[in-house]
Design a protein around this nucleic acid. Sequence first.
DNA 1: CTCCTAATTAGGTAAATTCCGAAATAGAAA
DNA 2: TTTCTATTTCGGAATTTACCTAATTAGGAG
Lengths: 193, 193
Amino acid sequence: MTNEEFETLLNFFKVMGNEKRLKIAGILANRDCTVRELAQMLKLKEPTVSEHLGTLKMLGLVTVRPEGNFRVYSFNSAALHTMNREMLSRGRLANLVQGEVEDSDQKVMKAFFKGDQLIAIPASRKKWLIILRWFAEKFEDGIQYPEKQVNEIILRHHGDYALIRRELVDWKFMTREKSIYWKLPTPTDLPLD
Amino acid sequence: MTNEEFETLLNFFKVMGNEKRLKIAGILANRDCTVRELAQMLKLKEPTVSEHLGTLKMLGLVTVRPEGNFRVYSFNSAALHTMNREMLSRGRLANLVQGEVEDSDQKVMKAFFKGDQLIAIPASRKKWLIILRWFAEKFEDGIQYPEKQVNEIILRHHGDYALIRRELVDWKFMTREKSIYWKLPTPTDLPLD
DNA sequence: CTCCTAATTAGGTAAATTCCGAAATAGAAA
DNA sequence: TTTCTATTTCGGAATTTACCTAATTAGGAG
């Protein structure tokens, strides 16, 4: 179930999103350790380390084995591997939230499309913008389209290409100069804060 | 620098280790959104979503572009890729903490080894165990070694193979039956990356 | 210019997390 | 059995985080 996978991934991030636990994982990725060894290296008390190890163990990221008088903790590559390969890609991430959140756009799309054909024009501005955004996605960033080609692309999904074309420009989804159309390229978004 | 990478990875986990932020990332992985849209889907107030988006933006996981009257947020696959491919493997993880934590073992090893030769026997039990663990690593999990081969392997690093061999068994690093020696296999540690 | 709307920042509260010392447990050793 | 030791569990203090409402900013539209 996708919801369960979401929880798994979320927990993975939560657990690894703590400095001390991430370090423990890193150290154990180098070699096996006892609780006391880890406590010394990290300058923490044993109970604290023990708790962290318990958390990591729940996730399956570490395993324990008794060895003489100690309990030796090991890193378990398999769990990391699972996260890495099976969950951490854009596609996977996208799937994890499907149905999880009510997606108002998909409702709108279902209501006004049949397949990839726009079969009705919504009265509400909000819904209309959702549809226009969908049309805008059919064009690539940074490419200049002659009007003829714009029409063609729109025609694949709706007969009244002039309406859609004009609306795309009006709502600034696209820019026109003479009869060349383009999307404003996504800015590189330099300044952070 | 490895320390900087550690911080980057830690922050990545921290940011994604929050239910709402992970969902935002998931939704944006499906399609671009405005703050208001996200707020509706997630049943949060806009300021809260805005904050989360700011956090995600700092990490480079999302970008913004103005579009008409709105600010449209997009998912940035590149950042995810970086984490996925360049940081999230056992080997990488292991490297991230090298030198970060003072590794008491390495001190001990330096003090009693010359190259890979054990040249002195520590008085302290603690230090002795570190050395024994090092010797234990020279043997593979799940392999049965006849005594002769055990001796050979130890001899590569120290003359008194009988001492080391006996200590390895005494301290339960290895098991002996008749004159066959083996390590107890580490449970569930599957192949790494 | 002013109005309007989307988004952000400020400030404060409630909840969750991290850490520790003290006490309990489990198991090897004697 | 009792003792000793490594680890875990408990209870609570200090810090951090997530979220809200209210106020502010930014920018297009009129």
